[in-house]
């Protein structure tokens, strides 16, 4: 009985949090519509914001699972760079788009597995294990092609115009029924992430491990396997984000992806997933990603100077979190 009440209470809190962030998203959009009535509330702009959100968005889905287990993955940005340059050097001379995609995803998943091994078998705390990977992967990205970016235009016959379906650049600039391919992929991954998190036994295990590891173990959850899997998943999604990024830029740069980890973690946490683990919301993550995309788009469109942008961004993030009902009282 008391369990049911506690459950309802927790669920209610979660919903409020999601609603609160939805209000922030709507408020930002309305603000944009008022300040820039001709260009902000347009389909072009919405499409543009979703496209820009897609890369960090894909990373944030993986990060949601990691943080739900009370872990953290600081290495996603560096993995994006390493996987991109690695796949570029594999695919560029004679390979094709398919090789690029497989190489990027496999390599990022491998780096994720290295994180996972260090954390589960080596019992290194996630913060340190992935901090080490942040440095290792960035170094590898610079080593693979002697610090130079890899041009990928040959994967599309050397030009940008009208990419043919399933060529690399199509993933970055192509559209299906007017919606960019990268946005379809982003939305698909968010929905898949929601289903896995909320409707499968694996999802319940992930949250259980983050909530109370000992209790989960006693209840028969394969704790080590679950923790291992979320870091591999985070790596795998970093591989997909790599494909989206390289497809948009037409090149794979060793300095790309810097600070993506902070954007992804920020989106997850303002979405309402608890850094302490045990509570996760995919809808919140999605709204968190949208919040960042809206802020960035609004501020560049208003042509605010950098310093004003930084202060505003910080203030909006803080405000968004304050709006949500505080869970802990000090």
């Amino acid at each position: 009985m008391s369990y049911a009440i506690a459950l309802r209470k927790r669920f209610g809190a979660l919903q409020f949090q999601e609603y609160a962030l939805a209000l922030v998203v709507i408020a930002l959009f309305v603000a944009g519509a008022i300040l820039k009535p001709d260009t902000f509330p347009t389909w072009d702009n919405v499409r543009n914001m979703l496209t820009q959100a897609s890369i960090v968005g894909v990373l944030a889905v993986g990060m949601t699972f990691v943080i739900a287990t009370s872990g953290i993955d600081l290495s996603v940005g560096s993995m994006v760079a390493a996987a991109g340059v690695f796949a570029g050097t594999m695919a560029e001379p004679s390979g094709g788009t398919f090789i690029f995609i497989v190489a990027a995803i496999a390599f990022a998943a491998l780096l994720g597995a290295v994180n996972a091994t260090a954390i589960t078998f080596g019992r290194v705390v996630p913060f340190i294990a992935t901090l080490a990977m942040l440095s290792i992967a960035r170094g590898l990205a610079l080593i693979f092609n002697d610090k130079l970016p890899v041009g990928l235009l040959n994967l599309n016959g050397g030009s940008f115009g009208d990419p043919s379906p399933f060529s690399l650049l199509w993933f970055g600039t192509g559209k299906i029924i007017g919606i960019p391919v990268s946005v379809w992929i982003f939305l698909g991954i968010v929905i898949a992430g929601w289903v896995v998190l909320n409707r499968t036994r694996y999802g319940r295990h992930v949250v259980a491990v983050g909530g109370n590891r000992e209790a989960a173990r006693i209840a028969g959850v394969p704790v080590r396997r679950v923790i291992f899997s979320v870091y591999v998943l985070s790596g795998l999604l970093a591989g997909i984000a790599t494909v989206l990024l390289c497809a948009r830029l037409g090149s794979a740069s060793p300095v790309s992806g810097e600070l993506y980890e902070l954007d992804a973690i920020g989106a997850v946490v303002i979405g309402g997933t608890s850094l302490a683990g045990g509570r996760a919301t995919m809808v919140g993550t999605f709204l968190g990603v949208l919040t960042f995309a809206l802020i960035f788009s609004l501020m560049t469109q208003l042509d605010l100077s950098t310093e004003i942008q930084q202060v505003t961004k910080g203030a909006i993030v803080l405000g968004a979190v304050l709006l949500q009902r505080p869970e802990v009282r000090y």
């Binding site: 543009n48 790309s256 960035f296 788009s297 560049t300 208003l302 042509d303």
Partner: peptide
Amino acid sequence: ANQPGDFNPEKGLTVMENILTAQP
């Protein structure tokens, strides 16, 4: 429009996308 791109092609891309949307 006057925005920083941090000498970085990635940032240049996203900033320019937003400017293109804002400026007809």
